[in-house]
Write a protein that binds this DNA or RNA. Structure first.
Lengths: 297, 297
DNA sequence: GGCCGGGGCTGCAAAAATGCAGGACAGGTC
DNA sequence: GACCTGTCCTGCATTTTTGCAGCCCCGGCC
């Protein structure tokens, strides 16, 4: 019987294209990766990869077997996520996943209050770009933008509408004035990027409504994007819920009708845990109040 | 990250109940099994088992995680089956799974002819009691009893009806006479068993139609059951398709109306392979002819 | 044409996993 | 009460795996 752990290397090398890159990603040594692959090939009786100077390329058999190795990898990572979730549940930790652009302005000010109200709960903020699977236990609570939340056993509470508006810094507005509509946008420099989750929405809107316009700079993080706008580098479309009360920013004009809303979401199974329930209530209440204050119900 | 291979030991110990039994089943040393479990617990940060004098008992967390470990094990064994199927395809091997009671009389006489017609094909006969999953590549061709074949991409060819009749040996009939119907059955000794697949059908029929009757002997294999009937030990219900042309056996009376049929089945994906196609045609044709000869269309 | 970087392979020493033998212990059995 | 049997754990020698340090090869670039 082959070593199940070798499937990790199999998938890793197939995805990375070389044992060197795979080793870096898997946190192992190139030699080890090459040897695990060789061992797996010996055990299975198949050559999985074609060795070339350019790297490891899947053989036909390898390709076919890879399709069956992926489910193993998926199941193994689901197992790991479940173990992590159980560990959090036992240690009173709550993992909250949220795009960082919403995190800084909306969540950070609430953390001290939450800590004071629930001193025994440890909070982990997860700003990963990927969407976490709550059903799998990859996170306990998520802040999500969607028209509505779909999922087997997800419990979602609506925070408020997710309106986006073009913003510039107060200093920029004083020096250059503010555009009043899309057509005036061409006379102002645009700052783009913000990472997936922001640029997905913002960039797609730009491409659709103002096809000629190119941002002068692209940031890969939303903190960078925000900092650039605050520093007066130019304009960017930003979610009102997150930045409407930032005194350094001034709204120009709304970027269109609102279809989406921001939701706070958890999983039915994990909501029973008192820590997670407490966090849902605390952050849910506070965020709903915030949305009402900003007129974004 | 934990070692995926340790999940094999996790599931093994959970099922076996002790590291010693698990080690025997997994073909490893008890010490190794215990140490792999300890390593997994360390990596996951959870105690999976309660150690006691009587063996390893799952903790609550262990139970919960076991439910997520099983899918990994299932995916891994599907991967192994796929690799084995690919190996067979490349080496020109065909694996045919069939209950042994059908195998001896129906298939064995055909093997020499098949070998002569297709000398390059290696044939593996699999008499396992479990049903093989053709979709997973656990076998290439199956002989199955069913009212109809259901499955995603299975190709099934009907051989003939699966009628069952009570048989005894010619010598037994000469000495004791033959029962003409169910009611006369009580005056004759019954031989039971035959392993799963035979006793499932035969035993359930007995329990339903002749509740008081107990077999004098139970065999766990169908070769044993057949040999006992041939030796004149008593009567047994047997599939006509398999034994109707056995000169040593005499039919008594049919055990009921026929709902099921015997099918030869393969998977769409594997049928493309010339070896498997050749075997399907050869055995399918020969078995259909046999069924027609015995009047069991 | 020399140089550099990505990639793979080999030899060797260190580290880890494995199997074996032995020991302990609880629960039956004669 | 002596004696199995099934179970787990520990210590030690052996085997296997791993990581590191070189070394080779090839293609692109200055």
């Amino acid at each position: 019987m082959f070593d199940w752990d070798d499937l990790r290397y199999f998938v890793g090398v197939a995805d990375a294209g070389s044992t060197l890159k795979a080793a870096a990603r898997l946190g192992a040594n190139q030699t080890t990766v090459a040897r695990r692959i060789a061992a797996l090939e010996r055990a299975l009786g198949h050559q999985l990869f074609e060795r070339g100077r350019a790297g490891y390329r899947l053989t036909e058999v390898g390709q076919r077997l890879l399709a069956h190795a992926r489910p193993v990898a998926a199941a193994a990572s689901a197992f790991a996520a479940e173990a992590a979730a159980a560990r959090r549940a036992l240690s009173g930790t709550v993992r909250l996943t949220v795009n960082e652009i919403y995190s800084e302005m909306m969540l950070t000010p609430l953390l001290a209050g939450f800590k004071a109200a629930h001193p025994q709960v440890r909070l982990e903020l997860d700003h990963a770009h990927e969407t976490r699977d709550l059903g799998r236990g990859e996170a306990d609570i998520a802040l999500r933008v969607a028209t509505r939340i779909e999922g087997d056993a997800l419990i979602a509470r609506r925070i408020g509408e997710d309106r986006w508006t073009f913003y510039c810094s107060a200093a920029y507005a004083a020096a250059n004035g503010k555009p009043r509509d899309i057509d005036a946008l061409a006379d102002h420099p645009l700052v783009g990027g913000g990472g997936p989750g922001v640029w997905d929405i913002y960039g797609r809107w730009l491409a659709h409504h103002a096809p000629g316009l190119e941002p002068v700079t692209l940031y890969d993080s939303s903190t960078g994007l925000l900092a650039a706008v605050r520093a007066g580098l130019g304009l960017a479309a930003l979610p009102c819920l997150a930045v409407a009360d930032d005194p350094a920013l001034e709204p120009c004009f709304a970027s269109g009708p609102v279809r989406r809303a921001l939701w706070i979401v958890t999983h039915e199974r994990t909501r029973q845990s008192p820590h997670i329930g407490a966090a849902m209530t605390y952050f849910g209440d506070a965020l709903v109040r915030r949305a009402a204050r900003l007129g974004l119900r």
